[in-house]
Design a protein around this nucleic acid. Structure first.
Lengths: 231, 231
DNA sequence: TATTTGAATTGATTTAGATCAACTTTTTTC
DNA sequence: GAAAAAAGTTGATCTAAATCAATTCAAATA
């Protein structure tokens, strides 16, 4: 992780995400002045569950995995964070620690904005607040879906869902499967690595997908969707 | 469920919850005019997962259980909704269906506010928006904790956590355990009813709690906390 | 008060999926 | 490019907790 020098910043994106459109020039200035640009290398942790958080992150470029950890060595992957998305928004206004970890799976380009700046803008700009609330609302729906998945689905359904989710990202990032290990996949499905391997092989045998080394081609999305739904 | 007549309304609480304090008189008027007061009987569903939601509920009096359902007959209890809390806030600004169900465990006194009114106030009143965002943020932290619990804890830890959670409510609602069935408890812990019964008996044998019919007295909160932490 | 219905209890059986162990393949590093 | 480390693969074994089945108990109903 390195902090960029001032003159790098001009090369970088502006605040062009939809939710920043509602900001007045003054507010844009506030965000700009309270932000820090940061680069993460593949493998670096962007956030670590339980650590102090006085800021929100905004992904400019690159991909990261958001996951929750147990005390031990287990983790469960929640989502792939893509450009234009926030990291750490979910907890920053109630506790000042991150409630999840995230790790860069490509080199990442991120900026940090102090939560005080965000809070100030929300207070003065209701439209911006509403757009954030929409994000919160979406995230919540996702979290409820995750809870249901974890509680009610078994191996096959979970794996199918994980594969469909990642496959959805493939058009934009064609090498997405190649970046992910079997363990990463398993952690998306919430199963053991060994089980993941066995399931993949069995799905290949049924011509539902094709394994080319680390890359995965979904051949029969319909059948996979069916497995996902059946649970 | 019955809708109250106009003259009943005067007997009822005003908008005295903390988050409404930031409202201007005009905004209070907007909420008042777009709300409907409703009574639910014990056992009634306040919300049903998947059904259309154009409004947010606000619990005035009574208790309800918030839970998620599978397609089949299983459910998992997320929390007990107490007076002063919102129901349905989490999803209303992204999808227009409820992402969870809730059922009254005592007679309940609720009002409904159209989401358009809420959205309008957020847009015009940033302070109100910020207070809602704090609620979202708390809820998110809870949801992440739930995901961790469901993923990483086993029977004993889950049951301990469920018991501690409910016991926390007991000072305010001394008969809380009497209202809950063994199945309710099991659904809070996310285990089968039979397992819940066995666990309770075994906790009683270890003098950690005392079972008086349906009531439960926690005798050794420390030990229970330890079980909860150990997982 | 008798009867029906639902909730609680208990022990026996089953099962999904984890863990373990041994091995092969790929990737990294020096 | 050899050696070491990490990731992937496979089958055998184990285990936590669900399910099943049978019974008791409590509460609602008539």
């Amino acid at each position: 992780m390195k902090t960029l020098k001032e003159n790098d910043i001009n090369f970088m994106c502006e605040l062009n995400a939809p939710c920043f459109q509602a900001l007045s020039p003054d507010e844009v200035q506030l965000v700009k002045s309270s932000r820090t640009q940061v680069q993460f290398r593949k493998g670096d942790n962007l956030t670590k569950q339980g650590t102090f958080a006085s800021y929100v992150m905004f992904m400019v470029e690159g991909l990261a995995i958001q996951y929750v950890e147990s005390d031990l060595t287990k983790s469960y992957n929640l989502r792939i964070i893509q450009p234009g998305e926030f990291i750490g928004l979910s907890s920053v206004f109630s506790v000042n620690t991150f409630s999840y970890s995230s790790v860069a799976i490509t080199d990442c380009h991120v900026f940090l904005v102090e939560k005080t700046a965000i809070a100030q803008i929300i207070s003065s700009n209701g439209i911006f607040g509403l757009s954030l609330i929409k994000r919160y609302s979406e995230q919540n729906v996702n979290l409820y879906d995750i809870i249901r998945k974890v509680l009610y689905k078994q191996m096959n359904g979970r794996m199918a869902e994980a594969l469909l989710y990642i496959n959805n990202i493939k058009p934009k990032y064609p090498d997405i499967f190649q970046i992910l290990t079997r363990k990463d996949l398993a952690d998306f499905a919430g199963i053991s690595t060994e089980s993941a391997v066995k399931l993949l092989k069995s799905l290949e045998k049924d011509n539902i997908l094709e394994l080319n080394g680390k890359d995965i081609n979904i051949l029969d999305e319909l059948k996979l969707t069916e497995i996902h739904k059946r649970g």
